[in-house]
Simulated assay, not measured.
Amino acid sequence: MTNGARHALGVLAGLLLPPLLAAGLWYGVGELSLTAQRDFRLSWTGIVVLAASGILLALLLGSRLSPVASLLGGLAFTGLGALPFAEMATGVRLLPDGLLPSSLRSGFMTVTYSGLLFLLGVALLAVSTFPSRWRGRPQEADAYDGQWQSAPSPYLPPSTGLPEDATRPMYRE
């Protein structure tokens, strides 16, 4: 895969995977907490959604695809995760209150106000800074064609078409 294709796929993954990760994380945390509070039981749907979100996070953090994917997700998560700190510092409400349904809203508020969203954003930004993720694969060496070409030996006289004396270690006059 060329570097251009790798980075193009990284941009595509960076635009698609972070919103899916955020929605899964918010829904999973909200579903688990609401089910535990309301029915005093585990929500297997919430656990499965959290596991799928963990897989998406692992793809963003550790994939060889491109660091652009983790960079875009890291910028979005860090920006959204910093809003509660800005709210506390300024006293102005910045986060939406009634936009999301109940389980998503509960998970969003839990993940955002606990600082977990900010932590995930900083982690995604940190893995984007490793130089080894920006480098492409080294160029492949030319394939060996099977034909060995020998250079003339500096120790033997110029070739005369006669068989060489292979028993001597060096040419002597």
Rank of each mutant, 00 (worst) to 15 (best):
S102Q: 13
A52P: 01
R137G: 04
H7L: 02
S103A: 12
P163S: 11
S33Y: 12
F77K: 00
V111H: 03
G62M: 07
L61P: 03
G121W: 00
L80C: 02
S102A: 14
L104Y: 12
M88V: 05
A22D: 03
R38S: 06
F85W: 10
A143Y: 12
Q149V: 15
T112H: 04
Y144N: 13
Q139K: 09
N3C: 08
G28S: 08
W148K: 10
R93H: 14
L83F: 07
A58G: 12
G4P: 01
A151V: 15
T78S: 10
A13R: 00
L95M: 14
L99P: 00
G62A: 13
P158F: 08
F118P: 00
A82L: 15
P169Y: 07
P84A: 02
A126R: 12
W26K: 00
T78M: 01
P152A: 15
F77S: 00
W26N: 11
S66A: 07
A151W: 15
L61Y: 03
E164Q: 10
R168C: 03
W134R: 14
S33M: 10
L61E: 04
Y113H: 14
V29Q: 06
G74W: 01
L100T: 01
A52I: 13
G24K: 02
A166R: 14
R6N: 06
L15V: 11
L50I: 07
G146Y: 12
A126H: 05
Y144V: 13
L15I: 09
P67M: 06
D97Y: 04
